[in-house]
Design a protein around this nucleic acid. Structure first.
Length: 489
RNA sequence: CGGGGUUUAGCGCAGUUUGGUAGCGCACCUGGUUUGGGACCAGGGGGCCGCAGGUUCAAAUCCUGCAACCCCGACCA
């Protein structure tokens, strides 16, 4: 006797599968969508320690690609890599007042070596300004030693209250550049130059449209004269500070006694900058490009750029897949999947992983000397002749990269709203997500008031200052700056 | 640090009300049949039920503590 379910077993099965395996739609719950994509796309997994995540091969490969590109760019612009210790003695951290006050609440302390209590406790670096400065103070004597253009790749620890994969971890991987110059102008130029480098990288490699600007005094880095940042806008309308550069003036030089003799044999304090970008950008990639099918990785940083899916395991199909693999592996990062998972499974899997381009090879294709090519960004399928496959892949990857940037750019612009009066500002803050562009008097009081009354914080003072109104959005006094407000990650 | 939730196999969960042999789906292993949008059959492996105390002949289940994690806020890359 048949089971009742036998009436339509297939439908029951497929509907069940979908419930089990589909990711949570981003419209329904963006936060859950984010964490489900992050884990299902095998980027990371949770570790035993809160806020310390395990980078899995696929996620780490993305970071390696980012790192390699940036490292090349840093070296191209004259920077050298070094490595500083992970531990900072308390007395060293305490040398610059504003800096220590900014970081003290979130540093982790080492108090024991083995079972012996240390005579001075040490913190695990939350950032390495103090270490670099201490080193510079000992090694810089003359203007001939300058500029110093050092960078280090490392991880740092900040004891955050709340953690989220990639966006906020106790331990995160990053790069921190620390430079020393003879004049303020030169150090400021470095600060701006590196911001441009980051912005260029985000747009041309990560396909993320960014706004370049300055942070307000309230939002600047602890100890900096000023902080520049690039801000990007996530799919849910929240902003993400994607990279920062800082100008220190001679504050750290005075605190750490970094002095040099200039051409006229006069002793002078040096001027400094620092700049960094972290694994947080991976969070940005996910939240800017991803959709309900999973990740979309920009071709230029994708660990797998092209996946070849063999539809069946017939010999001629396996052979043809292998042949195409051998042909294109010289030009692209390719994965060949000849496992006996069903085609549908493979389609979904590689879409989840955000592989930009999929090639499908089945019996029909062999017969017609063709191949099916599917773009991840548009999920569009086209049939192409096998013979000029390399050119087509080059062209399509290029199109995908451009299309992703263009979409990010459109999304950013569509979600910037210019507001001229405070009543409207408060309404929009309640009802809409995205960035609000206003005029501002520059006072911290207005910034504070806006935060209290609307929940929005200042994101950045854009480099492009096109005044569109005379008065400050908040107090109505004379406006001096164009500024963006928003909710930040 | 506030507010909410969760903790049982690698993952997702049921079982707890009413104590009585540890369950389901996915994943994994073996063999076979399949394969154009998450295939099927058969067989198999895997658990101190978050931790510590109680109560009881008997605890995943009841009681008392504690912890971890997730989400939302406040703080931060």
């Amino acid at each position: 006797m048949n089971n009742l379910n036998d009436k339509n077993p297939k439908n029951i099965y497929t509907s069940k599968k979908k419930i089990i395996d589909s990711i949570i739609p981003m419209e329904k719950d963006f936060a859950k969508w984010y964490t489900s994509v992050v884990t299902k796309a095998k980027l990371m997994s949770y570790s035993e320690v809160r806020g310390c995540m395990i980078f899995e091969p696929y996620g780490f490969a993305i970071w390696e690609n980012i790192k390699n590109i940036l490292d090349f760019k840093f070296k191209e612009t004259g920077h050298e890599n070094v490595y500083m210790p992970m531990l900072i003695p308390e007395s060293l951290l305490n040398k610059e007042k504003e800096h220590v006050e900014g970081f003290a609440p979130e540093v982790a302390w080492v108090t024991h070596g083995g079972s012996e209590k240390l005579s001075e406790k040490m913190c695990i670096r939350p950032t390495s300004e103090t270490l670099f400065c201490e080193y510079y103070s000992k090694n810089i004597k003359s203007y001939r030693d300058l500029p110093k253009l050092y960078n280090q790749w490392c991880s740092v620890i900040r004891w955050e209250k709340t953690v989220r994969p990639f966006l906020r971890n106790l331990e995160f991987l990053w790069q921190e550049g620390h430079t020393v110059h003879t004049t303020p102008e030169e150090a400021i130029e470095e600060t701006n130059k590196m911001l441009d480098l980051y912005a260029d990288f985000c747009e041309n490699f990560l396909a993320i449209s960014v706004i370049k600007g300055k942070k307000t005094k309230k939002e600047k880095f602890a100890g900096a004269e000023f902080t520049c940042a690039i801000e990007s806008l996530m799919h849910d309308g929240k902003a993400l500070q994607t990279a920062t550069t800082h100008y220190f003036g001679d504050k750290f030089a005075k605190a750490f006694n970094i002095q040099f003799l200039d051409k006229n044999n006069k002793l002078k304090h040096a001027f400094q900058s620092s700049w960094g970008i972290s694994t947080r950008v991976i969070g940005a990639i996910i939240m800017v490009h991803g959709d309900n099918w999973g990740l979309k990785i920009p071709p230029k940083i994708a660990p797998i750029q092209v996946v070849i899916v063999s539809i069946t395991k017939q010999n001629e199909i396996l052979e043809k897949s292998k042949e195409i693999y051998e042909k294109i592996i010289k030009y692209f990062k390719v994965k060949l999947d000849t496992s006996n998972k069903t085609p549908g499974w493979k389609y979904s899997e590689y879409e989840m992983l955000g592989v930009p381009l999929r090639l499908e090879i089945g019996p029909k294709d062999i017969k017609n000397n063709q191949i099916i090519l599917v773009r991840r960004d548009t999920r569009e399928k086209v049939i192409v002749p096998i013979d000029n496959i390399i050119e087509v892949i080059f062209e399509t990857l290029d199109n995908i990269q451009k299309n992703m940037l263009s979409n990010s750019h459109k999304h950013l612009n569509k979600n910037i709203i210019t507001i001229k009066n405070y009543k409207e500002f408060k309404e929009i803050a309640q009802t809409k997500t995205g960035l609000i562009k206003t005029m501002w008097c520059g006072s911290a009081l207005c910034e504070e008031k806006i935060k209290e009354e609307t929940g929005l914080t200042s994101r950045c003072i854009p480099n492009e200052q096109n005044f569109f109104e005379k008065n400050c959005i908040c107090c109505g006094k004379k406006a001096t700056l164009v500024i963006y407000w928003g909710i930040a990650y």
